[in-house]
């Protein structure tokens, strides 16, 4: 079953002795539902990765970094997880994120999605959906509302959207939310 988009799966492992870019590896690309599952079932669950590792799923042709021309004007919907959620919910939330992407779940605004990233960190894991243009308010908000609903987050949980341009100049925790849902 062909997908609308060809996707690329990336992996990175934090090695402070090397440049960030050198730690980033393209795992594989796929463009069918069957190949997605073959890959997903073959690789480690996110919760089994060691701290400092990331997975990223991006549209073919977009690198998972702010500097890519398709990302640099964009931003991300960020889901910050408490430590105990790695055990309980992390894998479910990441799989749901992947299914949102490959299933083109954001209607016409799916074209504004660039990819998604999961960061495994001791201080708390993070999952984010990256979109192309932070100023496209209607699309960003639609994606955020659908995404929050698909993750099954309660209405009390607030997730924020940060422009990469803001995140790049501040530490992650200080970047201000441009939108919230």
């Amino acid at each position: 079953h062909p997908l609308l988009t060809r996707w690329a799966l990336w992996f990175s492992k934090n090695d402070r002795t090397r440049a960030w870019r050198d730690n980033l590896h393209l795992v594989t690309k796929f463009d069918t539902v069957e190949d997605f599952w073959a890959i997903y079932n073959h690789i480690k669950l996110a919760s089994k990765l060691s701290s400092g590792c990331d997975y990223a799923l991006f549209k073919d042709g977009i690198e998972p970094m702010w500097e890519d021309s398709k990302n640099k004007r964009g931003g991300r919907w960020l889901v910050s997880l408490a430590k105990q959620q790695r055990h309980m919910e992390l894998d479910r939330l990441w799989l749901e994120t992947l299914l949102c992407l490959i299933g083109e779940s954001f209607a016409d605004y799916s074209q504004d999605v660039c990819g998604a990233v999961i960061n495994i960190r001791t201080k708390g894991d993070k999952i984010a959906v990256w979109t192309r243009e932070a100023e496209e308010q209607a699309g960003v908000l639609h994606i955020g509302r659908v995404y929050k609903d698909r993750l099954g987050l309660s209405t009390k949980t607030i997730i924020g959207y940060q422009a990469h341009a803001d995140t790049a100049t501040k530490s992650n925790s200080l970047a201000k939310n441009k939108f919230v849902v």
Partner: peptide, 18 residues
């Protein structure tokens, strides 16, 4: 062309099909 969209249910069903 035709948009190829799969809902969550279909994607999950594909996980276990041969």
């Amino acid at each position: 062309g035709t948009r190829i969209i799969y809902d969550r249910k279909f994607l999950m069903e594909c996980r276990n099909s041969p």
